[in-house]
Each structure stands twice: as C-alpha cells, then as structure tokens.
Nucleic acid binder design. Structure first.
Lengths: 230, 230
DNA sequence: CGCCAGGTTGAAGAGAATCAAGTGATGTGG
DNA sequence: CCACATCACTTGATTCTCTTCAACCTGGCG
C-alpha cells in the first residue's frame, strides 16, 4: 500500500519555514534570513515544465497550491509518471546532481523554490535541516519502493491502490477530487487510459465507488477496496 | 537502464572499513575500533533469511561473498524481489525503523553486520560517514526508480535490461554467471519463470546471447541488446 | 450552436499467464 | 559407479488479461 501523506514534511520545523517567510513583509523576519535562504514562490500554468530530465538539480521545491507530477520519458514516447505532489509536498530532491525525472504542473500550481546549495550549507550547520532532508529522501525511497510493488499487481489492484492512495492524501469530504487526467493516472499505473476507464466503470457498476464527474470519485466501500489490493 | 554498480561504496573511505578490520588479528587494528564499531562477519546458507519484513532495522549489512536478495511478499503469496546485492554491496538501509523488505541469501553468503545505532552516532561526529550513508540512500532511491521504469516495459525489454544490469555489475570474462534462479529473476522482473525462460530462448535463437548452462549467459551483441531496452 | 479535448465503450488482437508435460542437471543411497 | 529421486529449467497448448484501434459520448467554451 502506498504510504499515506508520503511527501509531507514532519509536522514541526518545516524545511521551508524560513524560505516561506520571504513571502511576508521584510520587517517580520530576521535580518539574516534573506541572505541565508533564497526561497521564491513561482507560478506554473497547467502542463508547464518546472524542470526537465537531465537538467542540473540545483533547487528544491515545495507545492503551495495545485499539483505537480514527476515524469520520465522512454525513447519510444511512452511516459512514466513517478509521483504526484500535492500542496505541502516537497519534490525535486534527486540522488545525483542531475534530475532523472522532469516535473510538470498537472494544474495551475504555485511552487516555492529553494536553492539547493543554500540548503546544503544550511544543513551542514543545522542538524534539524539535515534530519529533514534525510526524512525527505526516506519518503521518496519509500514511495518508489511502494510504486514497484504497485506495478506488479493486476490492473484492478493498481487502480484501487491508486484511489486509496489519493483518498489518503486528499481526504476531501467523503470522496476524492482528482486533479490529474486519466492519461496521468494511466502513466502512473503503467496502464492505458482505456483500461483505467474500464476498471473505474467496473468498480462503479459493483457499487464500490461512485463517479459523479470524471474527476470526482467517491469511495463507497473502503473496507472492500482495502481487501482488493493484496 | 539500471544503474551500474548501483550499490557499491565509493572507491575510497569505505563505510565498513573499520568493521572489516575486525576480521584481522587483534594486533593489526587500533584499540578503539572494537568499541566504536561492532562489525561481525556472519555466514548464511542458501535461502536463509537474514532479516524479515517488519523486523526492526537495527543493522546495516555488507556482502562479503555470495549474493543476497531483498523481497516483499504480497498477501496472496506473490513475491516481489526488490534488488540483488553482490559482494561489495551494502544493504539493509531502510526509510524507517522497520524493514519493509526481507533479505535472504540467494546462495551461501558471508555478510558483514554493523550496528545501526553505532553507525548513527559515528555519522553524527564524522562527516564522511554521514556522506556515505547519504550516498547509500541515494543509490537505493536511484535503483528503486529505475526498477519502476523497468516494470512498465515489455517482457523482452525487462529480461534484456536485467541481463545488461547484471553484466555491468558482475563483469566476468565475456559473459555473466548468474547466481540467482529463474524464479528469483522472474520475481524481480514481475514475470513468470516460463516467460523469462522463453525470452532467453528467443534471444538465444536470435544469436544475441548464448546460454551454455542455465546460469551462464554470454552477451554476444551488447550493442543490439542496448538498443532493445527503450 | 457546434467544436474539440477528455473520457467512455466496443470489438479484435497481442502478449503474458496458466496449466501441463517434458528434459536436464544434481545429489543420494545402494 | 550407477539407478533413482528431486529440483530447476524448458517447451507446448490454451486461456485470459490488457492493449490496440475505432467509434461514440459528454461537457466546456469560443
């Protein structure tokens, strides 16, 4: 099962706190901050690229609003979505100096951008920052490992797992408002849009979910869904 | 493509150096070492469990000889192999305090075991140790992400990717001596043993590989294989 | 109002799984 | 050293899941 709230920072001591304060009027933050941490909120239009594969990974990002997907392209045009990042999630941390994923806005999104080297030097002095970077890396690893497990399941199980993951992370009133398209979902699950659509229809016919609009999914029997996912 | 030598420590300053010296006669190591780093080489028989899922992750391991696999079991009995660890590779680093994978010896294996808390306290003082732990985590993440990409490919591509990965990591003279069974390979690739076998047969019939014995694979046209994997 | 992108549904086909029967190695006891 | 048992692997026939290709809805929006 995909980990709930996999990307959210710990509840206390946010990595971006100081950067976030850059948003506030100058008088409300400590003098040193503006030099130490250059964090800037930037807006991206739907489907805009935030960074590309193979670009240098010199920033870390936090979703303020909207949704972001990370992608990898295979040479023949197939696309693999690695993860979806929701408000509060941090992304852009890579294992090397280069991005292996690209990042794109799923819908119009506002993102906080923090310089990586700044963060690195900060981490060198501040234990708490280092700890949070480690936690972030851990969550990415956890997610990737869960994603591996997801991809060996049947189409049914994948779709159900996806719905449960999103329900955990979005938790709107008694249903999920999916920000992403069927194509995004399909590329995340390693399926085709047709298959995703069919699985949803079948689940709806079985009355385990309801699909009032194509993006809105209501989980009517979460117990049952939970048992489906192996 | 799966990263070459994904798990090997950097060439200098091995994380396990001091622990490894425990193997040597007492007079050849510094006095403080035995207290600081408790590393012990332990042998595991073929298919023996090194640790299980959900067990506390309080050690880090390094393969001295043999091969180790990490596994996750699905409730219906399916099994997913997360990775294979060869001599020189380090494993057992998890995102939390509990193992989410189990680890088993693929063949008789000798493994160096180091206490995690010892390592943690060492890392707190020694920058280099901390850096190496980070590198280790990075490689695990990289591998998991590559594994995700692997699992959305066709059976052909998966098998070829696997052969190329192993050829990179094992590099025996002009061919690969696979330590693992077809079942292990199948569970790593999310396929059945029959499919793996068939793909190998087809590659052999196409003269891109040779299979003198079931475990020995000779890559006769690596260029061509490289182009197959998308 | 009609267009168009996103989504659904249907029919046909491909690819991998399953079921079942071989074949080949490895090891053991006589 | 050989007969036999066992395990790992291969091969074949069939089934089933998912993809592909195509047509058809549906809901925004100029």
């Amino acid at each position: 099962m995909l980990t709930e709230a996999a990307y959210q920072d710990g509840s206390s001591g946010h990595l971006f706190d100081r950067a976030a304060r850059m948003d506030l009027p100058a008088r409300s933050r400590a003098v040193g901050d503006s030099i130490e941490l250059l964090g800037a909120p930037i807006s991206f239009a739907r489907n805009a690229e935030i960074y590309g594969e193979k670009e240098p990974a010199d920033s870390l990002y936090k979703v303020l609003s909207g949704t972001v997907r990370s992608c990898r392209a295979l040479i023949d045009g197939r696309r693999q979505v690695g993860a979806f990042y929701l408000p509060g999630d941090t992304f852009g941390l890579e294992s090397g100096d280069e991005h292996v994923f690209s990042a794109e806005a799923v819908v119009n999104a506002k993102v906080l951008v923090v310089d990586r080297s700044t963060l690195a030097s900060l981490a060198a002095r501040d234990k708490e920052v280092a700890r949070q970077l480690w936690a972030l890396m851990s969550r990415e690893l956890q997610h990737a490992q869960d994603h591996v497990l997801l991809l060996v399941k049947t189409a049914h199980e994948r779709v159900v797992s996806f719905l449960l993951e999103m329900a955990e992370r979005i938790r709107s009133s008694n249903g999920v408002e999916l920000p992403m398209s069927r194509q995004d979902i399909a590329d995340y699950l390693g399926l085709t849009i047709e298959t995703v659509s069919r699985m949803l229809t079948q689940l709806e016919n079985a009355s385990v979910i309801a699909v009032p609009t194509s993006k809105r999914i209501v989980l009517r029997d979460r117990e049952f869904l939970q048992r489906l996912v192996a």
